[in-house]
Design a protein around this nucleic acid. Sequence first.
DNA 1: CCAAAACCTGAAGCCTTCCTCATATTCTGA
DNA 2: TCAGAATATGAGGAAGGCTTCAGGTTTTGG
Lengths: 209, 209
Amino acid sequence: MPGPPPTALQPRKTPRQSRSRVTVEAIFEATIQVLLRGGMNELTTTRVAERAGVSVGTMYQYFPNKQALVYALNARYLDALAARIEATCREHAGAPLGQMVEALINTYWTAKTERADVTRALYRSVAELNNDVLIHAFAERVDRATTEMLASACDAVFPDVPRANLALVTVIYGTVRNAFERGVSDQEAAALRQDLTTMCRAYLANFRA
Amino acid sequence: MPGPPPTALQPRKTPRQSRSRVTVEAIFEATIQVLLRGGMNELTTTRVAERAGVSVGTMYQYFPNKQALVYALNARYLDALAARIEATCREHAGAPLGQMVEALINTYWTAKTERADVTRALYRSVAELNNDVLIHAFAERVDRATTEMLASACDAVFPDVPRANLALVTVIYGTVRNAFERGVSDQEAAALRQDLTTMCRAYLANFRA
DNA sequence: CCAAAACCTGAAGCCTTCCTCATATTCTGA
DNA sequence: TCAGAATATGAGGAAGGCTTCAGGTTTTGG
């Protein structure tokens, strides 16, 4: 049961005028760029500010420290990802299991690969954070959506929905991530994705009504 | 095709006398401990040396820099892990598919969970390394073993062994890792592990002779 | 037993980084 | 229009980290 994010990691103040919204946006984008080039080791406040075209002081007006910046960036990313998954789940409420699996894998896979380098950079950056809160919040939110979807399947009845859900999402998210880390080729990725779908379908077949 | 590890990351010299072997061992252990406490951010050379009961200078006699230390630690861990997987694969050459899957999952899962905190710490530490070389070397070595095992199955014939292998290992390794990151309970873990086995078996059933 | 090799020490130099703050600029609302 | 709020600046203080090296101690091989 994760509490709220540590106060030391919360944003300092939220931009009110449009110019500052642009600034914050630039800072986020710059952070990604720096992360892409040199990873966490070379992510310095000066470098980010420089790349964003603002001064260090400006950065510190919105983020109390460096960690908070990376934290916010990841929170932002996960929020968008969760929203996409939720949308997929809504769209497939009441559908047959097969379609659900395919849709879920498709959404997740696409979200991760459409900007593969960014995904990788974030995967790495989040590793040095106190990411438990982030991860849990994300997991909880997304679990709610997928569980609900599964329970609504028109051609299945689950003796234990949360269990089936956990198996599904863990396998899917884990596989995608591992595929990333291995740096599989496009060909391999395509085959892998197909096989992953096969596996999930075969698993869910056990619950056919 | 990854080359050899960057020279900047190679150990400086290998201990010859037994006392220095003890020292190096202590340094490794200390590194793990420090990593456990505070992660990469708090891993400083001074702290590691202090915890190991040696002076900083000693550390630098064996590792040219801090990164090399973490690199070596991970290389060591992956080497042991690979050895265990290879052993499992040898033991199950010619066995039926079902047993192979179960054994592989068992070995990997056990290896990761018997010292869960260490596993987690290393997962995190490796994220800030130039880990491509490490990952690839590990993957290649382990793939060789598992592929060979699969090909030897007494009750199956694969149209494309490497493909089936990639699917299997990516799903297994990825799932285990993701389970870690979510911090699943023991109960959930047990169920998940069972379901993972079910999935893999169902997948492999497609190749039954 | 002794010389050479291996090993260990830890204070100190150098460098980078984070973050603040006093000041300047821009915007908003009445 | 203009006062006050919001935003931006960037040099510099303070802290801490990495790494070296000159000089000790221990071990080994003969």
